[in-house]
Design a protein around this nucleic acid. Structure first.
Lengths: 232, 232
DNA sequence: ACAAAAGTGTTCTGTCTACACCCATGC
DNA sequence: GCATGGGTGTAGACAGAACACTTTTGT
């Protein structure tokens, strides 16, 4: 049996790891939110997260939360920022190490269903009121994603293993919130030499079907080590 | 009188804020380090930092540490990363929210002298062995600085209010570790329109003295709000 | 045959790079 | 007058932006 209280000479804030989980579906960027079942902010939507366990790193905690909510593992995850102001949480001083993850919604669909808690995907421009300072954290994550997608090939983490160039372009347009010229976009992407042509096309659409490609991650990592810079 | 112990139902890691303090002097990028007077790592050099006080934000804590070590206030400071792995500190689970600060060494020189603890500036390429995982934190900070100086006008935070273009170029060369063409560098800087000519030159040197400039921070902030992007 | 989206090249413009000579100052 | 570093312009290469027509497919 474990002792029921932990005592320290100096006060310590509580520490949580929260994770903004982004997905991309039907041309729309989405985030996974959890409806809180307990106070404070009962009934509000919140970013998934929880308190660090004993001797658990924040990243391990965030990955655990992600797995519990989505069943997904081995996805792209990166530390975002730590929010440490007293007053963020009415229960006392709680500091949050925030992460963001990019998941392939196509893979997620298969595994969902363990919903003891109420979880839902919200389009990024149709968010409900959020608990705590989670709107601030989410804006932080959006800005990071917008900045990073331009010089790191992280967009592919949001698409299925096989995707089309129109898909990829729609993803960039949704995240950057700009229209991109089709010809210039394709040229830039092709110049990187990091797409593998799958020699297959979309079928069953009433127009020419787009070609499938996949991202050559191994090649990218080789090049990255030699100072190559992905830029869109 | 305050109670002598704090008890919580669940275990909590201890939280510190540490701050890498960068300075620039004589063409060299430097960091301020503290020689530890107590175990663990007694006698090793370490990044200044300390435990969060009750209801203190990590940023406030880092600023307090900075002021205690250097006497400087209102300097550029930014959150770097949080280090949360158990095992970082032999005393138990300690998570560190790391910051980095850029200080004008010219102003610092005036105020130094409150050295109860042993503090010293080390050139970035002549570092001693560091305590804990502080070498990792420092490399993190160097990479951030290198990345950020290219698209944010933070270099000016390391120079005196009045500086010359050769000074500025030396700063960029020291941080980016590349040689830059003098003419191209000057053109780029001038194109930003953010330097104010002080109509004065260096004197007392056995060659033509370089002109003094200052950085127009107010103008930059105006432009930044309208989407202007500083790029070198 | 037509509707709907995929695919493809060229021109123009502006920016980055490379490069060499004169200028001011103190000794 | 000479040694030292400060200051300046130009030509060629390259990359980004703008732009319109043809191709494929299902109905």
């Amino acid at each position: 049996m474990r002792q029921s209280t932990y005592c320290y000479e100096y006060p310590r804030p509580a520490v949580t790891a929260d994770c903004i989980i982004f997905g991309f579906d039907a041309g729309t960027l989405k985030v996974l939110l959890i409806e809180r079942g307990i106070e404070p902010f009962k009934g509000h939507w919140a970013i998934p997260g929880g308190f660090l366990r004993e001797n658990e790193s924040a990243e391990a905690c965030a990955k655990r939360e992600l797995f519990e909510e989505t069943g997904l593992e081995n996805v792209f995850m990166e530390q975002l920022f730590s929010f440490t102001e007293p007053g963020r949480d009415p229960r006392g001083h709680v500091i949050t190490v925030a992460y963001y993850a990019l998941v392939k919604l196509s893979e997620y669909e298969l595994k969902a269903g363990d919903d003891a808690r109420n979880a839902a995907w919200f389009p990024i421009d149709q968010l409900p009121a959020l608990a705590f300072d989670h709107d601030r954290i989410l804006h932080f994550a959006m800005n990071r994603l917008r900045g990073k997608i331009r010089y790191q090939p992280i967009g592919f983490e949001l698409l299925p293993g096989r995707f089309t160039l129109p898909d990829l372009q729609a993803l960039y347009e949704a995240i950057l919130q700009v229209k991109i010229d089709r010809r210039n976009f394709r040229r830039k992407i092709n110049q990187t030499g990091l797409l593998i042509d799958q020699n297959e096309s979309v079928t069953g659409v009433p127009h020419r079907g787009a070609r499938y490609y996949s991202f050559d991650k191994a090649k990218y990592e080789q090049l990255a080590q030699r100072g190559f810079n992905f830029e869109i």
